[in-house]
Amino acid sequence: MRYIKKLTLLLMLTIFLLFSCGTNHKLTPPENVNILEFGTESTLEVVTWNLKTFPVNNNTVQTISQIIPQFKVDIIACQEVMDQNAFYQLASAIPQYEALVSNATSSYRLAYLYNKETVQVNEVYPIFVGESNPFPRPPYVLDFNYKGLNFICINNHLKALGDDYIDESDAWDEEVRRRLACQKLDQYITEHFPDSRVIVVGDMNDQIAEPPSTNVFQVFLDKPDEYYFADYPIALNPSYDNVSYPHYSPPSHLDHILITNELFDAFAQADSICRVIKVEEYMGSWSTYSSIISDHRPLGVRLYFSR
């Protein structure tokens, strides 16, 4: 009888410990977690998304209009907008969002979607217009305020293709053009925004983690006190699950987010992160996603500010 009482007491103590300790640390996420949700109320989110000759088909606008509100982000920098009217139609279908489209090119336009409830747009304009060698699509600058702080976002779509070799004898070599574009962006930021919070985003069409001899981003990598690629951990360990362009062989990470040192502290906060948003999982498969929306995943950065 005494043994049974001891056993009962031990069992009750075990149950008490199981239910009273660690209740705030769930080992598995709840089933209702939204796989599209990226933003929070206390962070600034900037997403870059190549929309692959937007709109891909007649279902594109409606599908994206249902997806973007679930991101809960402040700014989306888009590339490859072919039909600007359809892009404005997209914005009008999404509560709280407005569109900005660059007219520096007649196709493959750069554009923004922004949450007008959290973002105050001060100015938007293209740069390096007419310099088609480094910039086949002139970068699109967005000057904006968020929670009383000023930011500069520079949206890019650099020259595509190439052979992973910088041909110094050919000014029109794809890698030479991308390298020159990065050098010019560095000069522009240094001259115009030396103390600003700058976020450089876009489809850069090249890898970050390459040897210096073939790395078109070396001008940024050589200045670790001034610049940091928020997605650099992805570039160092690319896999199908974490890159922005997964269906290339091998999976490639071509979309990037570069921040200046004015944002280092914000990115170091616990709530800050940079990762892709796997929209294809929400849509059921990659084939469905790529046939309606894009062959690139959106890549986002989340920055926490104490004020």
Rank of each mutant, 00 (worst) to 15 (best):
residue 115 N to C: 03
residue 172 W to K: 08
residue 179 R to W: 12
residue 164 D to Q: 15
residue 231 D to V: 04
residue 126 P to W: 09
residue 209 A to Y: 14
residue 116 K to Y: 09
residue 200 V to A: 03
residue 110 L to N: 02
residue 121 V to Q: 01
residue 186 D to Q: 15
residue 200 V to N: 01
residue 208 I to F: 07
residue 226 E to F: 07
residue 148 G to K: 06
residue 199 I to L: 10
residue 181 A to C: 09
residue 180 L to Q: 10
residue 103 N to W: 14
residue 225 D to Y: 04
residue 241 D to A: 12
residue 211 P to D: 03
residue 231 D to H: 06
residue 128 F to A: 00
residue 239 S to A: 05
residue 116 K to V: 15
residue 234 I to S: 06
residue 115 N to I: 03
residue 199 I to Q: 06
residue 237 N to Y: 15
residue 120 Q to T: 15
residue 176 V to P: 05
residue 207 Q to I: 15
residue 191 E to G: 05
residue 112 Y to S: 13
residue 120 Q to C: 07
residue 203 D to S: 07
residue 214 T to H: 03
residue 147 K to P: 14
residue 174 E to Q: 12
residue 133 N to D: 15
residue 184 K to P: 02
residue 134 P to H: 06
residue 190 T to F: 03
residue 102 S to W: 10
residue 121 V to C: 02
residue 190 T to D: 10
residue 175 E to F: 14
residue 175 E to I: 09
residue 235 A to C: 11
residue 224 P to G: 01
residue 191 E to M: 11
residue 133 N to V: 15
residue 175 E to W: 12
residue 125 Y to M: 11
residue 233 P to D: 01
residue 152 I to N: 00
residue 101 V to C: 11
residue 133 N to P: 02
residue 218 Q to C: 03
residue 146 Y to S: 03
residue 138 P to D: 01
residue 183 Q to W: 11
residue 163 D to M: 11
residue 176 V to K: 07
residue 202 G to C: 04
residue 148 G to V: 12
residue 105 T to C: 14
residue 102 S to N: 07
residue 176 V to D: 08
residue 104 A to K: 10
residue 146 Y to V: 04
residue 225 D to G: 05
residue 151 F to S: 01
residue 214 T to L: 06
residue 160 A to E: 04
residue 105 T to F: 14
residue 227 Y to Q: 00
residue 235 A to W: 06
residue 217 F to M: 06
residue 230 A to P: 02
residue 181 A to G: 07
residue 122 N to L: 13
residue 217 F to A: 00
residue 142 L to G: 01
residue 200 V to S: 01
residue 187 Q to E: 15
residue 175 E to A: 10
residue 143 D to R: 11
residue 228 Y to P: 12
residue 101 V to E: 08
residue 128 F to Y: 09
residue 234 I to Q: 05
residue 200 V to G: 00
residue 192 H to K: 09
residue 184 K to F: 13
residue 219 V to M: 07
residue 184 K to N: 08
residue 122 N to D: 15
residue 141 V to R: 01
residue 198 V to H: 00
residue 209 A to K: 11
residue 187 Q to M: 12
residue 162 G to V: 10
residue 150 N to E: 15
residue 163 D to H: 10
residue 160 A to D: 05
residue 113 L to S: 02
residue 148 G to N: 02
residue 172 W to T: 14
residue 179 R to L: 11
residue 164 D to L: 14
residue 233 P to F: 08
residue 174 E to R: 08
residue 187 Q to N: 13
residue 106 S to T: 12
residue 115 N to Y: 00
residue 162 G to E: 13
residue 215 N to L: 11
residue 172 W to M: 11
